[in-house]
Design a protein around this nucleic acid. Structure first.
Lengths: 226, 226, 226, 226
DNA sequence: GATGAATGAGCGTTCATTCAT
DNA sequence: CATGAATGAACGCTCATTCAT
């Protein structure tokens, strides 16, 4: 378990080993309960070396968040082919997302739980990543809406789509909801035996694309006056 | 600050004051960073009294989770009238949910962030509550689906609905997605200035009921072969 | 050694025990080399109690300096009777000073060496005490000069003494030199076996009063041109 | 900053650079707070090289003390011309002393504060230098006393001066006081804006030669019975 | 019923010091 | 000759927890 205790490695390699150990420990125990001792031991190095390379517990945690956020975003990006229609792009992104979180549960715990739970240096870090993803999804929604318009010429009269007049904030809310649902399903899929990332993605696509309203034969919904 | 230091209060009252202080402190600082000293001071009692009444930090945290989980579930339950159609029930439940989380941010932080982030005694506690809510939503979805069936007699031929052949797990996934989206929107609504709990609920209802597919004029979605 | 390990003492008493132990340890080992563990053990208490009462190593050190500075100044003040002539006052003050420093060597080490050696929060603290003493000595010098004037009517023509026209800074320098000599002699007397505080005081009084010039039959001294 | 990083210098030169850096760092931060890392960096060499040349922190500090002590003593020695009368010698020595301490504040801090504050290997080192200076001053006092004797033939009947029967210890005390006063004035002159090393020396010469008694028109002083 | 007094245990951090290259 | 890599040991500080009153 952990890295084999090999001596005299170049700095870059050791740093990655430390980050591996830190992500696992932070993911397992939580930021505060994780001790630098445990991380160092798991990394197969002494504690001073961890401090020499990564300065402090805070910096170490931040480095973990950055590395894993980048890794997750890249995994999602690598999964989508931008030349496909929006729904296929979303599908691919979701599959990549669920696959990545399933394969890196500690990283996902760090990003989704630990970083958000422990205040400002960290929450901001992961919020940046999340906003990137939300922006990506928002754009997909807008593109999908455009593609779906029956008569292309009707749209973009002055840049503002007329038919599905989505206020910006409305779309932002939808994207937020979609991403939130995805995050929740990731945890659910990982915890529920026998749910593959493919199934999770399919469930969410059905939810997002057809809505529950499909079950009701298209009966529309609008808020009651209250 | 905190409770006024009044002497000789009945135990039940003192306990509630302690829980109030604990929820606020746990919500503010996080489970591990919250110190029993701070909680006792905020509650206006001495530390040994906290231990006399609530045994340990773990028990205190658990008591917080239980009280706030119960409070949240009751608030949601109180908001729905079971004699209304399913969509109205869902709408009412969401409004109650968003309103409660907005009004009790520390409690929501404890339930949504802290409890899930700090391992097993606590995660299970809040998971129980969550399952209760998911079950409620699941049932609403099923009822809604039934209500939507054009010919009631077609369904439940042998207990298995035929037309909208929803595997149990599929519905569970939908409910999970819906609840996850709600949780995410709660944080988003609280963080985004000018978004009321009503708007958040409306956004989610639109998303859930009509789906994004509505934007595409009902063009259905089905997973590509891959 | 150290205080007998008695339990449950009132806070004020414990604090003094801690300060005793701290002064001894700081005096013995130096500020940085002294460990809070050693101080706590010498005081017969656990380390957290030291922190509970005295906050931090810095604060503890500052408290030591303040207590011992006050103690030293009070000892000197208590030794002089302000109704006596200036030379007798100086003599009494020096005797008290040498006696106190001889009886409290750790305290003297803290004030004279440790506090000055370890930078700003501390140096300022002891500098304040020193200035108090220098001011006292300065005043004694001025008074002595007045007393020594053969014809009282000659002085204070407009408030400024004419004959021994001592620039303010000149007097300050003399006082500084006298105090510095006293500080040095304190260390010398403590280190040299058989030198009593009385002898040290006498030596310094002779030096200060008659000067070395006495040895030269009053041959005056004035700086060469260069 | 510090020495320019030049490669392949002869050992002796490198050692001096290291000592320069060490003196500055020890003077600035204090012995314990100074880190070998900082010293090595300021010297422009790697840490192991410091250890290779100077063995340990203790040895390094000792080397600093020795070099600076030697430097100070040599500066003072170089300032006096032994063919002049004693008062001129003392004057010259003091001027050299004040000038040197003013020009090498870190060295003076190391000798006067750090070395004395940090216990035995070091205090002894600087004490040796101090004794050398005290001995020099003692001899000057004795010589001055002899010069001042009206009838040269009266003195040195058998090597023991008769008239001004100065017990050896008495002279030692005077020299100690003089040196102590000088040390104090050095700090005072460096800290007080506008006081030159010449003025500091003049103040001390006046103090030493004429004494405060001069102000009192030669009224002698003798210890009260007590 | 309520509290001032007290602590065992552990954590983040640093530093002087040494190999292996 | 010179250094990047690595560590054992210790220190300042904090916290959940418990007595004795």
């Amino acid at each position: 378990m952990g890295a084999v205790k090999t001596k005299r490695m170049p700095r870059a390699v050791r740093e990655q080993q430390m980050l591996d150990a830190a992500v696992e420990t932070f993911g397992r125990r939580g930021y505060m309960a994780a001790s630098m001792d445990e991380i160092a031991e798991l990394a197969g190095v002494s504690k001073p070396l961890v401090y020499l390379y990564l300065n402090s517990k805070e910096d170490l945690f931040t480095a973990c968040i950055r590395r894993e956020a980048k890794s997750l975003v890249e995994a999602v990006r690598a999964g989508v082919r931008t030349d496909l229609p929006a729904d296929r792009q979303l599908w691919a992104g979701l599959r990549a997302f669920f696959a990545h979180t399933a394969q890196h549960p500690y990283a996902w715990s760090v990003l989704h739980l630990q970083a958000r739970t422990h205040g400002e240096p960290f929450a901001a870090e992961v919020a940046a990543m999340r906003e990137e993803i939300v922006a990506f999804v928002t754009q997909l929604i807008v593109v999908a809406a455009r593609e779906a318009l029956p008569h292309p010429r009707l749209r973009s009269c002055g840049g503002t789509p007329t038919a599905p007049d989505l206020a910006e904030r409305e779309v932002a809310g939808l994207a937020e909801a979609l991403v939130g649902a995805a995050e929740s399903l990731a945890a659910w899929a990982n915890a529920t035996a026998g749910v593959t990332s493919r199934q999770a993605a399919a469930t969410l696509m059905n939810f997002a694309w057809s809505g529950l309203g499909d079950l009701m034969n298209g009966r529309p919904w609008s808020p009651p006056p209250d």
